[in-house]
Write a protein that binds this DNA or RNA. Structure first.
Lengths: 78, 78
DNA sequence: CTGTGACTTATAGTCCGTA
DNA sequence: CTACGGACTATAAGTCACA
């Protein structure tokens, strides 16, 4: 029952969900896109694209971002 | 503290983790790679590659697989 | 600081096989 | 049934100038 969510989360686009999670967690940490991108080893504009759900990144990129945010990779997709 | 796991899961390659999860869940459902690939709308050889951790798929593919398995996308990366 | 279009290079993803 | 290779096409990765 903790997982009625999986019936819901399919509705939304996974790219948008990833984007919202990244933006939220980044802001919680008080970092700008620029600062975060730098710290994650990813280009600034690429982070911008991801936060807007305009990209379809690979799981390696998700792993990099998760590491920089200090969360589990899977958490970014939920 | 439910998340000391995030300190551990970075150790392993995320591709291998995905592969193991997919293989495990697929087998639990008693499907062959072929049948599952078909049912998930992904090519047979690609599923084979993913289960062996030999590929770096995009999150859209992860979402497709998760949907076919009836689990949350994030679950496949944990 | 962030969004966006355009662009090149790398690789994701498909499809044909064989063992 | 699954692993794996080769060849191919579609799209992600990665960067930039500018709004």
């Amino acid at each position: 029952m903790s997982d009625i969510r999986h019936l819901i989360c399919w509705m939304g686009d996974i790219q948008k969900r990833l984007g919202k999670n990244v933006a939220r967690l980044r802001k919680e940490r008080g970092e700008s896109q620029e600062a975060f991108a730098d710290h994650a080893g990813i280009h600034r504009t690429y982070i911008s694209d991801i936060e807007r759900g305009a990209r379809n990144p690979t799981i390696e990129v998700v792993a990099k971002i998760a590491k920089a945010l200090g969360v589990r990779p899977g958490e970014l997709l939920d």
